[in-house]
Simulated assay, not measured.
Amino acid sequence: MHICLSDGWGGLEMYPSRIIPELAAQGWQVHALALGDSRVARSLDDAGVPTLTARSRGSALFGVRRWLEYLARHDIRLLHCHKSSDLRLAALLATLRPRLKVVFTDHMGVTRPKKDLYHRWAYGRVSRLLSISEATRRRNVKAFALPAERIQRLYLGIDPAPLAPRLDAGERRALRTSLGLPASATTIGVAGRLTPGKGQRVFVEALARLIAEHPALDVHGVIIGGLSAEEGSREEYVAELEALVAEQGLSQRITFTGFRRDLARLFEVLDVVCVPSRNEAFGLTVIEAMAAGKAVIGSRSGAIPELIDAHSGRLADPESASEWAAAMLELAQDGELRRRLGEEARRRVKQHFLLSQHVEGLTQVYDDVLAGRPAV
């Protein structure tokens, strides 16, 4: 059973509905527990996953008897959690039903030690802690009171097929026009929730510097992401970005698209994709852009340097607008370089970051945990 008691909506919350159908296709009988009327619950329903719901995280704890009866009735022997708050419930269930095994995926990257009595009890029930990058695994080894061999790196993965280009030249022109993008400009975009940690501010500052220093360069910025709290963004931060764009005189040079469900198609009208996040635990947007064959500039921080090498993209300091401007300039001026980087990026995704590879690794973890075998 996958447990995800989150009312948010990001990569963590999307994970169960992406993974469970893949597990089911391999013969696993997978159930889920989510908050009622959350986007997680709706995504699981849409994926056809048998899903229990709780009104709140607190009520989930008070529903222990119900969950234990359900686990026994369906002979569920493994719980997979995705948030530290989920682990409270999973650890309690495993304490009351000792045959249960617990797997926990750290999607966020721990930022402080968790070795007090509560965390020793809760994480002591975890048979395997999965880190989604080497950067997070190193932090986890230091932060948790767990033997290092029970903390395992397992990269996330994607299906690259939906990200392959599909639009013909006319459709790309029409999409550019609908977004208000100049026909001839080199487009440089950033996609993600509009929050300070995602780095859109340094993106705007770098683009302002690039345009000021190279006024003849025909470039246009694109900021993709919801503009409201309901769409996962911080509205005060959105207002700051819009004010910064106006202050820099870039209102005609940067487009805010708002929330979009067609990111794969938007990649087709971007020449360069930037991911200036300060501390990504993994970086799904990075590998999605790579799978789309885009030249990517990523932050030289967190897990992103594990995803991009010198042959498949560029890295820049997430705090340095000048470094971002320099990388933007290099790629904006050289279409052939963008093409080569994009082709190598596609190959790199297929070699290291496929969803099928992730699921293969995950099922091996499940098998090992249920059989009591140590991590390899």
Rank of each mutant, 00 (worst) to 15 (best):
R153L: 04
R138T: 07
L156S: 12
L179S: 12
L179D: 15
E22G: 03
L89F: 15
E213A: 14
E134G: 13
P160S: 03
G180Q: 09
G124L: 05
W121T: 02
G293I: 00
G157S: 10
G199S: 14
F267R: 07
R55L: 11
A135M: 05
C81T: 15
I308P: 10
D86W: 08
T177M: 07
L181N: 09
T51L: 13
T257F: 08
I158L: 15
V365S: 13
Q351D: 12
R125W: 06
D86L: 08
R260A: 09
V30C: 15
V141M: 09
L35Y: 06
R339P: 00
Y155A: 14
V286W: 01
E343V: 11
E13Y: 05
R278Q: 04
A34D: 11
P276W: 01
A321Y: 01
R314L: 14
G36L: 04
D271P: 05
G8L: 09
W121Y: 10
S251C: 07
L92D: 09
G313C: 13
L217E: 13
D159T: 12
L307E: 07
I132H: 03
I158Y: 06
D368I: 00
L61K: 05
A326H: 14
R150K: 04
Q29P: 10
I76W: 01
R66E: 13
R125A: 04
P165S: 11
R176W: 05
L163V: 01
I132K: 04
H119T: 06
F259S: 14
L181M: 10
G258L: 14
G157V: 04
L71H: 09
A281C: 00
V359C: 13
S131T: 08
A375C: 06
K142V: 07
A164L: 14
D7E: 14
R125L: 02
K101D: 02
S178H: 12
A327L: 13
G27W: 07
I211R: 12
L175Y: 08
A321F: 02
P160E: 03
S228R: 15
